[in-house]
Nucleic acid binder design. Structure first.
Lengths: 210, 210
DNA sequence: CTCTTATCTGAACAGTGCTCATATAGACTG
DNA sequence: CAGTCTATATGAGCACTGTTCAGATAAGAG
């Protein structure tokens, strides 16, 4: 039947079929949608509409709506990872404290610049790591950077995972609290930058005292 | 028909057409729903169904679905605040480090024990603080505890708000990362307790060095 | 007792996720 | 080239959703 016969060995590029590459087009349409609207405005039908295709077409590329959103989330992690790489490689004095500063800043900035996208990345639905394996893989790449940094900092002797977790919790908390509101209301500025800068210095002072 | 009590001041029993306190019944039904299912399973119609009422009835008590969820969120903050109060008042040696430990533990535990409820409390929809004034008020009561603690810690001299924010970000991050998955997968235990305990000691050691 | 008002119903509308039989267009085989 | 074969897209349809609205009903005020 329509179950895979194993003939097609992971086509590197989907050529011009009916649409071209509908899968990516759907992901892009979703990204464009959540860039302005919030994630609640994402409906499979609207996404299909924007891709110029019927409501049933996406089901040939994604198992269901969650599968599309998972692909969007995965691309979020990819973008975040790339940004972290760029940020780390552009440090003049690559001491661990500067690396922590760079990672924290670009993590929080990414989340604040793309709130809906960031929210999709952390939906509870992605819990099943077999079902969403590639998403988890990409997410773990991000965590890997924190782990490496933690290893350098602690010298591997004490509880490096706890440190990495705690750092992640901190930046994720800053970003989430800002994006979801309650934190935003307590500060004068409409930018997170001042708060971010102060929190970073506070935190770095704790983790890496001179 | 069941018992027909003449007076009905505080609405003990669901009565026929006009049922005692539908508003609270709807909130309770939602709470019962998200105690087992996740928040995506909450539909106004299902909640109405469980309250033994038609789909249109809730609209006499809540402007829309979000208004119901906001009431649920508000009750979440109330429960959290109560738990924090109890926790703080049951400390033997009320030093600031013990207070921070207590707050962090009971905050994270609440979030982990009621993941869906906690998630509702931090929906981006509550951004409008005029529209959801009472919700924001209850949320700020929770933040107030952190602020007080930060004031005691810093003696009011340095950046107490930054400290309070950072602490909040930390506990919120721990709870969120655990609930939404990525963190959970990196630890052996199916309980957050070991990780929580280590993170708490790490953090307290930073904020309040001996 | 009548009248008023808050509450609840039943029906309806538009929109959703998803399935299925059917149509079509590239790609593969001969 | 013709003749498949299969992935892709369609359009209709189902069950469900949030929300509105005219009308029924109950509870309380006069």
């Amino acid at each position: 039947m329509t179950t895979r016969v194993g003939k097609k060995p992971a086509a590197p590029r989907k050529r011009a079929y009916h649409h071209g590459d509908l899968r990516q087009a759907l992901v892009d349409a979703t990204l464009k949608l959540i860039a302005t609207e919030d994630v609640g405005a994402v409906s499979l039908r609207e996404v299909a509409r924007r891709a110029g295709v019927t409501a049933a077409a996406p089901y040939h590329h994604f198992r269901d709506k969650d599968a599309l959103l998972a692909a969007v989330a995965e691309e979020g992690y990819r973008a975040l990872n790339q940004r972290m790489d760029e940020s780390l490689s552009s440090i003049r004095a690559p001491r661990t404290d500067n690396q922590l500063r760079a990672l924290a800043r670009c993590y929080v900035r990414f989340a604040v610049e793309h709130p809906a996208h960031y929210r999709v990345m952390f939906r509870q639905e992605w819990g099943d790591e077999e079902k969403y394996a590639s998403l988890h893989a990409e997410g773990m790449r991000a965590y890997g950077r924190l782990q490496e940094l933690a290893k350098e900092t602690t010298g591997g002797k004490v509880d490096m995972d706890t440190l990495a977790f705690t750092v992640w919790a901190w930046v994720h908390g800053l970003a989430s609290l800002w994006n979801e509101g309650p934190l935003r209301k307590k500060t004068r500025s409409d930018s997170i930058e001042p708060l971010l800068e102060r929190s970073v210095e506070l935190f770095v002072g704790w983790v890496m005292p001179k």
